[in-house]
Write a protein that binds this DNA or RNA. Structure first.
Length: 275
DNA sequence: ACCGGAGCCTGTTAGC
DNA sequence: TGCTAACAGGCTCCGG
C-alpha cells in the first residue's frame, strides 16, 4: 500500500502530534507485529520514553526517542497509523502507543504484514541495506545511471529494489516510466543517456507531486486523521488499463512483471522509441 | 551476483 | 444472486 509519498504524508501529520510527547506504554496485540525483534525489548524501550523527532527512511517511519533506540514502523501493504482520543474499536488493531496526556496512536493492519522494531543493531536486513533516497540531493542522474549499469532486469522491476533506491513502490514505478516515456520492460542497463535523465527527473517529479498531494488512496491508505490522499485521481496509468493514455489516447495496457502489475502506454512507451 | 517465483495474510472485486 | 478465482499499494526466502 504505502510508498514513499504516503509514508512521508504520515510522518508529516504525526510530527506535530507526537513530538515532545511521552509514551506511557506500547501495547502489542498481535505476535506478527514484532516478528523482526524481541517484543519485550520494544515494550521496554517505549515505556516512559520521550519522543524527540519523527522521520522517514525509505518506507520506514522512524519514531526517535530520547536516550533510547529509535522505533521503526513499516506499514507494508495494509498498515495504518491512526491518531484518536481512545483506542480504535477495529478488529485489525495490532498495537497501541498509549501517550501520556495525549491522544492514542493506533497501528491498524488488516493483513498483518506490517512490523514494528527497534533500530538497536538487530534491525532486519531490509532496513540495514536501504539504498539512496530518491528525493535527496545526492540522487543525481549520474548516480542513477551508475545504479542501472549492467543490470538486465526490466527497468520498472528494478525501481522496486529498496536496496538500490529507497521508497519507490508499484504505483509510482509505473507512473515514473510513463512520465519518462520509457518502456517498463526495457533492461535497466540498456537505457540510453537521454532515457536515464528523463527517468531520473520523472521519479523525482512523480514522488514530490504525490507528497504535495498527500499520497494516493486506492482503497486502504489513510492519513493519521483518517482522511484519504489526493493523488489518486492524478494517476496517469496505474490501474487505468483499457483507458486512454492521457498523452496520446492509446489504450493503456496491463502486464505482469516479477509477479506485479505494470501499467503502460504501448505507444508513447514503445520499446522501439530511441532518442 | 543475479533473477524469477512462491509465500506470507485478509479483504474486495471481477467474472462466470 | 451467489460462488470462485484473481488481485491488492510490501517484502522475504529459496531455487536455478
Amino acid at each position: 500500500m504505502p510508498e514513499l509519498p504516503e509514508v512521508e504524508t504520515v510522518v508529516r501529520a504525526l510530527r506535530p502530534v507526537l513530538t515532545g510527547k511521552t509514551i506511557d506504554q506500547l501495547e502489542l496485540l498481535h505476535p506478527r507485529v514484532t516478528r523482526h525483534g524481541h517484543p519485550h525489548l520494544l515494550e521496554d524501550a517505549c515505556r516512559g520514553a520521550n519522543i524527540v523527532a519523527l522521520s522517514r527512511r525509505g518506507k520506514f517511519i522512524l519514531i526517535e526517542l530520547e536516550n533510547r533506540p529509535t522505533v521503526a514502523v513499516h506499514l507494508r501493504m495494509s498498515g495504518q497509523l491512526l491518531v484518536s482520543d481512545t483506542p480504535l474499536p477495529s478488529p485489525h488493531l495490532r498495537a497501541i502507543f498509549h501517550l501520556e496526556d495525549g491522544p492514542t496512536l493506533n497501528f491498524v493492519d488488516i493483513r498483518t504484514f506490517g512490523t514494528i522494531f527497534l533500530i538497536d543493531g538487530s534491525e532486519p536486513d531490509g532496513y540495514r541495506t536501504l539504498g539512496i533516497e530518491p528525493l535527496s540531493s545526492s540522487f543525481t542522474a549520474k548516480r542513477f545511471g551508475e545504479i542501472l549499469e549492467g543490470r538486465a532486469t526490466g527497468i520498472k522491476t528494478l525501481l522496486l529494489r529498496q536496496d538500490l533506491i529507497a521508497g519507490i513502490g508499484n504505483i509510482y514505478a509505473s507512473e515514473a516510466c510513463w512520465l519518462a516515456k520509457v518502456h517498463p520492460a526495457l533492461p535497466a542497463g540498456e537505457l540510453n543517456e537521454a532515457q536515464v535523465k528523463r527517468l531520473h527527473r520523472a521519479i523525482r517529479r512523480v514522488l514530490s507531486d504525490a507528497v504535495e498531494n498527500l499520497g494516493t488512496t486506492l482503497s486502504d491508505f489513510r492519513r493519521p486523521d483518517g482522511e484519504p490522499g489526493q493523488y489518486g485521481n492524478r494517476l496517469h496509468v496505474y490501474g487505468r488499463h483499457e483507458n486512454p493514455c492521457p498523452r496520446c489516447g492509446t489504450s493503456i495496457e496491463r502486464m505482469v512483471q516479477h509477479g506485479r502489475s505494470t501499467f503502460f502506454c504501448p505507444r508513447c512507451q514503445s520499446q522501439q522509441l530511441r532518442d
